[in-house]
Amino acid sequence: MAILLHGQDKILVQGITGNQGRFHTRQMLAYGAKVVGGISPGKAGQQVEGVPVFDTVRQAVEATSATASIVFVPAAFAKDAAFEALENGIRLLVLIPEHVPVQDSIDIVTRARALGAVVIGPNTFGIITPGEETKMGIMPNHIYRRGPVGVVARSGTLSYEIAFSLTQAGLGQSTVVGMGGDPVVGQTFISVLEAFRADDETKAVVMVGEIGGSAEEEAAEYIKDLGKPVVAYLAGRAAPPGKRMGHAGAIIERGRGTLESKEKALSAAGVRVVTMPWEVAPAMQQVLVR
């Protein structure tokens, strides 16, 4: 079944005529995603990779009945693009841009909650459902296989590393969700775990976390009753306090957000916590056999 994103979902690309939008539209189509329209104000009538371009989301939704949209516009315009999507009936919204102001993210997430829409990101690599050959995101196509492992990650490349190691170990994935590296993002580990819990195809979950915030600690309490095994790898053991490690959200501030506190909480909740990324796949093999 997979979660959140399914094979039949019709997808729009906001910012389709930009370099990134164009490139990833091609990649998404190649993977099998149903990209049915693009938005770029003033460019209606054009085509990108055979996909029709519209001036507005409203026009695109009327023409295609799309319910999902992926946003590639610059960060300063992300709020406008996100609201345009949400107000026009989009219910799965993937926000790729990095450096979206946190106050804008708060507004986006608040509105999405009120409308019952799912927001993934910002500052995310997106979401991919290998079993249904669809994706909304910038992840490489070749590293995933269909299978029983759900993956939820804060970081892109690190999740590629781990997803690929799972694939090589013969452990395919149901859905891989990138929460995003910002302090405020649409999903929480808990919201994604809830979806994995309800999904029959997902037999176990990999969490890829990192320093900063307390999303992992918060998730730990929930995992106690998840009913599916969880393997977690968290990055940032060597990170000093007070320094932002690339992601806006990856910072140990005023004693909060340390790896130690996260690993302790997860271990206490019965999660199999590994300390290096290459230990994830072997650990997953063990918990799946058990």
Binding site: S155, T157, E161, E210, A235, R237, A238, M245, G246, P277
Partner: peptide, 17 residues
Amino acid sequence: MANGAGMAMATLDAIQH
């Protein structure tokens, strides 16, 4: 040097490991 923030963090962790 690594590509991606998470990978870069994991790389430091691996060296320390």
